[in-house]
Protein backbone atom coordinates (compact mmCIF):
# COMPACT_ATOMS: atom_id res chain seq x y z
CA UNK A 1 0.00 0.00 0.00
CA UNK A 2 1.46 3.27 -0.99
CA UNK A 3 1.35 6.26 1.26
CA UNK A 4 -0.40 8.71 -0.96
CA UNK A 5 -1.87 11.63 0.88
CA UNK A 6 -5.42 11.07 1.96
CA UNK A 7 -6.73 14.35 3.18
CA UNK A 8 -10.45 14.28 2.94
CA UNK A 9 -13.40 13.46 0.82
CA UNK A 10 -14.07 15.34 -2.37
CA UNK A 11 -17.15 17.50 -2.61
CA UNK A 12 -17.48 18.07 -6.33
CA UNK A 13 -20.12 16.15 -8.20
CA UNK A 14 -18.44 13.27 -10.04
CA UNK A 15 -20.52 13.49 -13.20
CA UNK A 16 -19.61 17.14 -13.49
CA UNK A 17 -15.95 16.43 -12.80
CA UNK A 18 -15.70 13.84 -15.55
CA UNK A 19 -17.16 16.19 -18.13
CA UNK A 20 -15.04 19.21 -17.21
CA UNK A 21 -11.84 18.31 -19.12
CA UNK A 22 -13.57 17.48 -22.37
CA UNK A 23 -15.85 20.51 -22.09
CA UNK A 24 -12.90 22.82 -21.61
CA UNK A 25 -11.16 21.45 -24.67
CA UNK A 26 -14.19 21.57 -26.90
CA UNK A 27 -14.90 25.12 -25.78
CA UNK A 28 -11.33 26.19 -26.52
CA UNK A 29 -11.31 24.52 -29.93
CA UNK A 30 -14.65 26.12 -30.77
CA UNK A 31 -13.27 29.46 -29.70
CA UNK A 32 -10.22 29.08 -31.94
CA UNK A 33 -12.46 28.12 -34.85
CA UNK A 34 -14.52 31.27 -34.38
CA UNK A 35 -11.64 33.65 -33.77
CA UNK A 36 -9.25 32.29 -36.39
CA UNK A 37 -11.23 31.15 -39.41
CA UNK A 38 -8.32 29.16 -40.87
CA UNK A 39 -8.10 27.03 -37.76
CA UNK A 40 -10.48 24.30 -38.81
CA UNK A 41 -9.13 23.93 -42.34
CA UNK A 42 -7.42 20.70 -43.45
CA UNK A 43 -3.99 22.36 -43.71
CA UNK A 44 -4.15 23.43 -40.06
CA UNK A 45 -5.41 20.03 -38.98
CA UNK A 46 -2.51 18.34 -40.78
CA UNK A 47 -0.13 20.79 -39.09
CA UNK A 48 -1.66 19.93 -35.73
CA UNK A 49 -1.06 16.24 -36.38
CA UNK A 50 2.51 16.83 -37.54
CA UNK A 51 3.33 18.94 -34.51
CA UNK A 52 1.80 16.32 -32.24
CA UNK A 53 4.04 13.47 -33.42
CA UNK A 54 7.05 13.80 -31.06
CA UNK A 55 4.77 14.26 -28.03
CA UNK A 56 2.57 11.36 -29.10
CA UNK A 57 5.51 8.98 -29.56
CA UNK A 58 7.01 9.98 -26.20
CA UNK A 59 3.55 9.64 -24.68
CA UNK A 60 3.33 6.06 -25.97
CA UNK A 61 6.53 5.24 -24.08
CA UNK A 62 5.32 6.92 -20.89
CA UNK A 63 1.88 5.30 -21.22
CA UNK A 64 3.41 1.83 -21.34
CA UNK A 65 5.51 2.50 -18.24
CA UNK A 66 2.50 3.89 -16.37
CA UNK A 67 0.33 0.95 -17.48
CA UNK A 68 2.95 -1.50 -16.21
CA UNK A 69 3.77 0.37 -13.02
CA UNK A 70 0.38 1.67 -11.93
CA UNK A 71 -0.82 5.25 -12.01
CA UNK A 72 0.36 6.37 -8.59
CA UNK A 73 2.96 8.84 -9.82
CA UNK A 74 5.22 8.54 -6.78
CA UNK A 75 5.09 4.83 -5.93
CA UNK A 76 3.90 3.52 -9.27
CA UNK A 77 5.26 3.68 -12.79
CA UNK A 78 6.56 6.88 -14.29
CA UNK A 79 9.38 7.58 -16.69
CA UNK A 80 10.42 11.22 -16.75
CA UNK A 81 13.53 10.38 -18.74
CA UNK A 82 11.87 9.51 -22.07
CA UNK A 83 12.28 13.08 -23.41
CA UNK A 84 15.91 13.13 -22.26
CA UNK A 85 16.47 9.80 -23.99
CA UNK A 86 15.00 11.28 -27.16
CA UNK A 87 17.27 14.31 -26.84
CA UNK A 88 20.33 12.12 -26.24
CA UNK A 89 19.50 9.88 -29.19
CA UNK A 90 18.84 12.93 -31.37
CA UNK A 91 22.16 14.44 -30.32
CA UNK A 92 24.02 11.27 -31.27
CA UNK A 93 22.27 10.98 -34.63
CA UNK A 94 22.82 14.66 -35.44
CA UNK A 95 26.46 14.52 -34.37
CA UNK A 96 27.11 11.38 -36.40
CA UNK A 97 25.51 12.84 -39.53
CA UNK A 98 27.00 16.31 -39.23
CA UNK A 99 30.47 15.76 -37.78
CA UNK A 100 31.46 12.17 -38.45
CA UNK A 101 30.08 11.71 -41.94
CA UNK A 102 28.30 8.52 -40.92
CA UNK A 103 25.60 7.04 -43.08
CA UNK A 104 22.04 7.59 -41.98
CA UNK A 105 21.74 3.91 -41.08
CA UNK A 106 24.81 3.97 -38.84
CA UNK A 107 23.75 7.19 -37.18
CA UNK A 108 20.24 5.95 -36.49
CA UNK A 109 21.55 2.61 -35.25
CA UNK A 110 23.89 4.35 -32.81
CA UNK A 111 21.15 6.69 -31.62
CA UNK A 112 18.80 3.77 -31.07
CA UNK A 113 21.45 1.75 -29.30
CA UNK A 114 21.93 4.63 -26.86
CA UNK A 115 18.18 4.92 -26.34
CA UNK A 116 17.81 1.22 -25.60
CA UNK A 117 20.83 1.31 -23.29
CA UNK A 118 19.28 4.26 -21.46
CA UNK A 119 16.01 2.36 -21.12
CA UNK A 120 17.95 -0.64 -19.82
CA UNK A 121 19.67 1.54 -17.24
CA UNK A 122 16.28 2.74 -16.01
CA UNK A 123 15.01 -0.83 -15.89
CA UNK A 124 18.05 -1.89 -13.90
CA UNK A 125 17.71 0.94 -11.38
CA UNK A 126 14.03 0.24 -10.83
CA UNK A 127 13.88 -3.54 -10.80
CA UNK A 128 17.34 -4.50 -9.52
CA UNK A 129 18.40 -1.59 -7.35
CA UNK A 130 14.87 -0.97 -6.12
CA UNK A 131 14.70 2.79 -6.71
CA UNK A 132 11.25 4.29 -7.13
CA UNK A 133 10.70 5.05 -10.82
CA UNK A 134 10.16 8.74 -10.10
CA UNK A 135 13.53 9.12 -8.38
CA UNK A 136 15.38 6.84 -10.79
CA UNK A 137 14.19 8.49 -13.98
CA UNK A 138 14.48 12.01 -12.58
CA UNK A 139 18.13 11.24 -11.80
CA UNK A 140 18.90 9.48 -15.07
CA UNK A 141 17.25 12.24 -17.07
CA UNK A 142 19.86 14.71 -15.75
CA UNK A 143 22.59 12.25 -16.69
CA UNK A 144 21.18 11.69 -20.20
CA UNK A 145 20.87 15.41 -20.80
CA UNK A 146 24.40 15.85 -19.51
CA UNK A 147 25.63 13.22 -21.96
CA UNK A 148 23.75 14.83 -24.84
CA UNK A 149 25.52 18.11 -24.05
CA UNK A 150 28.86 16.35 -24.24
CA UNK A 151 27.93 14.91 -27.63
CA UNK A 152 26.81 18.20 -29.16
CA UNK A 153 28.95 20.52 -27.02
CA UNK A 154 25.59 22.08 -26.15
CA UNK A 155 25.25 23.63 -29.62
CA UNK A 156 22.53 23.48 -32.18
CA UNK A 157 23.29 21.12 -35.10
CA UNK A 158 21.44 21.80 -38.36
CA UNK A 159 20.64 18.80 -40.47
CA UNK A 160 19.77 18.54 -44.14
CA UNK A 161 20.13 14.78 -44.35
CA UNK A 162 17.69 13.19 -46.82
CA UNK A 163 16.29 10.91 -44.12
CA UNK A 164 15.36 13.81 -41.86
CA UNK A 165 14.09 15.95 -44.74
CA UNK A 166 11.94 13.09 -46.06
CA UNK A 167 10.51 12.46 -42.63
CA UNK A 168 9.71 16.16 -42.36
CA UNK A 169 8.39 16.88 -45.85
CA UNK A 170 7.59 13.56 -47.48
CA UNK A 171 4.03 12.48 -48.15
CA UNK A 172 2.25 9.20 -48.69
CA UNK A 173 -1.08 9.40 -50.56
CA UNK A 174 -1.27 13.07 -49.67
CA UNK A 175 -0.63 12.48 -45.97
CA UNK A 176 2.65 13.56 -44.35
CA UNK A 177 5.08 10.65 -44.09
CA UNK A 178 5.70 11.41 -40.42
CA UNK A 179 2.01 11.10 -39.62
CA UNK A 180 1.83 7.77 -41.46
CA UNK A 181 4.88 6.36 -39.66
CA UNK A 182 3.64 7.59 -36.29
CA UNK A 183 0.21 6.08 -36.96
CA UNK A 184 1.97 2.76 -37.57
CA UNK A 185 3.77 3.07 -34.22
CA UNK A 186 0.52 3.89 -32.47
CA UNK A 187 -1.19 0.89 -34.05
CA UNK A 188 1.61 -1.44 -32.98
CA UNK A 189 1.55 -0.09 -29.44
CA UNK A 190 -2.22 -0.30 -29.26
CA UNK A 191 -2.36 -3.90 -30.44
CA UNK A 192 0.48 -4.91 -28.16
CA UNK A 193 -0.99 -3.28 -25.07
CA UNK A 194 -4.73 -3.56 -25.55
CA UNK A 195 -5.24 -6.54 -27.83
CA UNK A 196 -2.55 -9.06 -26.92
CA UNK A 197 -1.93 -11.57 -24.17
CA UNK A 198 1.26 -9.73 -23.21
CA UNK A 199 -0.62 -6.44 -23.00
CA UNK A 200 -3.32 -7.82 -20.74
CA UNK A 201 -0.64 -9.14 -18.42
CA UNK A 202 1.18 -5.81 -18.52
CA UNK A 203 -2.04 -4.08 -17.50
CA UNK A 204 -2.54 -6.57 -14.69
CA UNK A 205 0.95 -5.88 -13.34
CA UNK A 206 0.16 -2.18 -13.16
CA UNK A 207 -3.43 -2.62 -12.00
CA UNK A 208 -2.67 -4.82 -9.00
CA UNK A 209 0.83 -6.17 -8.53
CA UNK A 210 -0.22 -8.82 -6.01
CA UNK A 211 -2.92 -10.08 -8.36
CA UNK A 212 -0.35 -10.39 -11.12
CA UNK A 213 2.02 -12.30 -8.88
CA UNK A 214 -0.75 -14.67 -7.83
CA UNK A 215 -1.50 -15.26 -11.52
CA UNK A 216 2.10 -16.42 -11.83
CA UNK A 217 3.38 -13.40 -13.77
CA UNK A 218 7.00 -12.33 -13.45
CA UNK A 219 6.28 -8.77 -12.37
CA UNK A 220 9.86 -7.52 -12.58
CA UNK A 221 10.22 -8.78 -16.12
CA UNK A 222 7.19 -6.76 -17.23
CA UNK A 223 8.44 -3.66 -15.42
CA UNK A 224 11.88 -3.99 -17.01
CA UNK A 225 10.29 -4.51 -20.43
CA UNK A 226 8.19 -1.38 -20.00
CA UNK A 227 11.29 0.76 -19.37
CA UNK A 228 13.10 -0.80 -22.31
CA UNK A 229 10.12 -0.11 -24.56
CA UNK A 230 9.93 3.45 -23.28
CA UNK A 231 13.61 3.81 -24.19
CA UNK A 232 12.84 2.49 -27.67
CA UNK A 233 10.01 4.99 -28.09
CA UNK A 234 12.40 7.69 -26.90
CA UNK A 235 14.73 6.59 -29.71
CA UNK A 236 11.90 6.64 -32.23
CA UNK A 237 10.81 10.06 -31.01
CA UNK A 238 14.34 11.39 -31.59
CA UNK A 239 13.88 11.11 -35.36
CA UNK A 240 10.68 13.12 -35.20
CA UNK A 241 12.30 15.65 -32.89
CA UNK A 242 15.10 16.06 -35.42
CA UNK A 243 12.60 16.36 -38.25
CA UNK A 244 10.43 18.90 -36.45
CA UNK A 245 13.41 21.04 -35.50
CA UNK A 246 15.41 20.36 -38.67
CA UNK A 247 18.28 19.32 -36.44
CA UNK A 248 19.24 18.91 -32.80
CA UNK A 249 18.53 21.80 -30.43
CA UNK A 250 19.66 21.91 -26.82
CA UNK A 251 17.06 22.57 -24.17
CA UNK A 252 14.01 21.01 -25.84
CA UNK A 253 13.77 18.23 -23.25
CA UNK A 254 11.91 20.37 -20.72
CA UNK A 255 9.18 21.37 -23.18
CA UNK A 256 8.87 17.80 -24.39
CA UNK A 257 8.60 16.57 -20.81
CA UNK A 258 5.74 18.89 -20.04
CA UNK A 259 3.87 18.00 -23.22
CA UNK A 260 4.43 14.27 -22.71
CA UNK A 261 3.14 14.30 -19.13
CA UNK A 262 0.24 16.55 -20.08
CA UNK A 263 -0.76 14.39 -23.05
CA UNK A 264 -0.55 11.10 -21.18
CA UNK A 265 -2.48 12.13 -18.08
CA UNK A 266 -4.95 14.10 -20.18
CA UNK A 267 -5.62 10.86 -22.03
CA UNK A 268 -6.38 9.13 -18.74
CA UNK A 269 -8.90 11.83 -17.87
CA UNK A 270 -10.71 11.10 -21.13
CA UNK A 271 -10.62 7.31 -20.96
CA UNK A 272 -13.82 5.58 -19.86
CA UNK A 273 -12.04 3.54 -17.19
CA UNK A 274 -10.00 6.61 -16.14
CA UNK A 275 -6.72 4.84 -16.67
CA UNK A 276 -3.75 5.69 -18.85
CA UNK A 277 -4.13 4.12 -22.29
CA UNK A 278 -2.21 4.17 -25.56
CA UNK A 279 -5.08 5.88 -27.38
CA UNK A 280 -5.53 8.36 -24.58
CA UNK A 281 -1.91 9.45 -24.80
CA UNK A 282 -2.21 9.98 -28.56
CA UNK A 283 -5.47 11.87 -28.25
CA UNK A 284 -3.92 13.97 -25.50
CA UNK A 285 -0.91 14.78 -27.70
CA UNK A 286 -3.17 15.90 -30.55
CA UNK A 287 -5.22 18.09 -28.23
CA UNK A 288 -2.10 19.69 -26.75
CA UNK A 289 -0.80 20.38 -30.23
CA UNK A 290 -4.18 21.81 -31.26
CA UNK A 291 -4.06 24.13 -28.27
CA UNK A 292 -0.54 25.33 -29.01
CA UNK A 293 -1.44 26.09 -32.61
CA UNK A 294 -4.83 27.47 -31.61
CA UNK A 295 -3.36 29.91 -29.10
CA UNK A 296 -0.82 30.95 -31.73
CA UNK A 297 -3.54 31.51 -34.30
CA UNK A 298 -5.50 33.83 -32.02
CA UNK A 299 -2.34 35.75 -31.19
CA UNK A 300 -1.57 34.68 -27.62
CA UNK A 301 2.00 35.51 -26.58
CA UNK A 302 4.24 32.43 -26.72
CA UNK A 303 5.42 33.05 -23.13
CA UNK A 304 1.88 32.48 -21.93
CA UNK A 305 1.55 29.00 -23.39
CA UNK A 306 3.57 27.41 -20.57
CA UNK A 307 1.27 29.07 -18.11
CA UNK A 308 -1.84 27.92 -19.91
CA UNK A 309 -0.64 24.34 -20.34
CA UNK A 310 0.42 24.12 -16.71
CA UNK A 311 -3.01 25.39 -15.72
CA UNK A 312 -4.62 22.79 -17.95
CA UNK A 313 -2.64 19.98 -16.35
CA UNK A 314 -3.94 21.12 -13.00
CA UNK A 315 -7.57 21.51 -14.05
CA UNK A 316 -7.64 18.17 -15.83
CA UNK A 317 -5.97 16.15 -13.10
CA UNK A 318 -8.01 17.86 -10.39
CA UNK A 319 -11.23 17.03 -12.22
CA UNK A 320 -10.09 13.49 -12.87
CA UNK A 321 -8.87 12.98 -9.30
CA UNK A 322 -12.20 14.15 -7.93
CA UNK A 323 -14.16 11.98 -10.32
CA UNK A 324 -12.06 8.92 -9.56
CA UNK A 325 -12.32 9.31 -5.80
CA UNK A 326 -16.05 9.84 -5.98
CA UNK A 327 -16.42 6.53 -7.77
CA UNK A 328 -14.66 4.43 -5.18
Amino acid sequence: MSTTLAIGRPQLNSALASVVPLAIFLALLGYFGLRAPGFLEPATLILILKQAIPTAVLGLGLAIVVIAGGDDVVAGGIDLSVPSIAVLSAAIIADQLASHGSSAATAVALGFAAAIAAGAANALLVTRVGMTPLLATLATSTAYIGLSKVVTANRRIDLADPLIVTLRDGTVLGLPLGVVVATGLVAIAHIAVHRSRWGLRLQAVGGNRDAAEIAGLKVHRFLAQSFLIAGAFGGAASLFVLARGSGSTPGVAETLLMEMVLATFLGAAFSPRRVVTVWGAVLGAILVSALSIGFGSVGVDVFWTGCIKGGLILIVVAASALAKRNRT
Binding site: L5, G8, V74, L314, V317, A318, A321
Partner: peptide, 9 residues
Amino acid sequence: RLRISPFLA
Protein backbone atom coordinates in the same frame (compact mmCIF):
# COMPACT_ATOMS: atom_id res chain seq x y z
CA ARG B 1 -8.24 21.76 -1.52
CA LEU B 2 -8.28 20.32 -5.03
CA ARG B 3 -6.75 16.97 -4.03
CA ILE B 4 -4.23 16.89 -6.87
CA SER B 5 -1.35 14.54 -6.18
CA PRO B 6 1.72 16.49 -4.98
CA PHE B 7 3.75 15.38 -7.99
CA LEU B 8 1.29 16.70 -10.57
CA ALA B 9 0.36 19.76 -8.51
